[in-house]
């Protein structure tokens, strides 16, 4: 609060005050302390080369990170021959996608017949999911059908893959195929 009144006293104090005459008149140019020391917030931030997660053009981005590891800014990477540092509105909003008070950053669990979500520890949820996968697989696994070996389960399906990476697709596919899941699909068909 005090900061707002400082400028007046500073202006009238020695040094500042001497130049008062220059500043009175038609077009005074009275820069405040904040203005005089203004620097973009990424002046000392570390740029990390990332990618835009929206469409498939593949625009390279720079995510600026502070010394404390906080995300400060995400913008286009001028080195990219594809995007040349440009981004569309969605790409320009990656920061807002990531730093957003609406984002769910904890596990939400909805019990059968419940009308609400509950917060649950991550480890609990993961173990429960693993158990349910096993349970469903045991129930629905088919070794052969019409005299042919099929070794699959139609009781579990997976959808997703176009918004996450190659490695993630690979691990998901490897895991699902090994479980005998065949309905593995992603946005590419949708």
């Amino acid at each position: 609060m005090a900061k707002t009144t400082i400028d007046l006293t500073k202006m009238l104090s020695a040094g500042e005050g001497l130049r008062l005459s220059e500043r009175v008149g038609m077009m005074p140019n009275l820069a405040s302390e904040r203005t005089r020391t203004l620097k973009g917030r990424i002046a000392h931030a570390k740029p990390v080369v990332s990618l835009c997660p929206y469409c498939a053009v593949g625009c390279s981005t720079l995510a600026y990170v502070s010394d404390e590891g906080k995300l400060l800014d995400v913008e286009g990477n001028p080195d990219s021959p594809i995007s040349g540092g440009h981004l569309c509105p969605k790409g320009s909003a990656i920061f807002g996608l990531t730093v957003n008070d609406q984002r769910w950053t904890t596990v939400k669990y909805r019990a059968p017949y419940s009308d609400r979500y509950e917060e649950r520890p991550l480890a609990w949820a993961l173990e429960r999911i693993a158990q349910r996968v096993k349970e469903t697989r045991e129930q629905t696994f088919v070794k052969s059908s019409d005299g042919k070996r099929v070794n699959h389960t139609l009781g579990i399906a997976s959808l997703g893959g176009a918004t996450f990476g190659v490695e993630e697709n690979y691990l998901l596919g490897k895991l699902m195929h090994s479980l005998g899941v065949v309905s593995i699909e992603n946005q590419a068909r949708i």
């Binding site: 707002t4 007046l8 009175v24 008149g25 038609m26 005074p28």
Partner: peptide, 14 residues
């Protein structure tokens, strides 16, 4: 209130 004081930083004829 202190915002009024900002008016007193300068005299601007225009």
């Amino acid at each position: 209130p202190e915002r009024f004081l900002h008016m007193l930083r300068i005299v601007k004829f225009k």
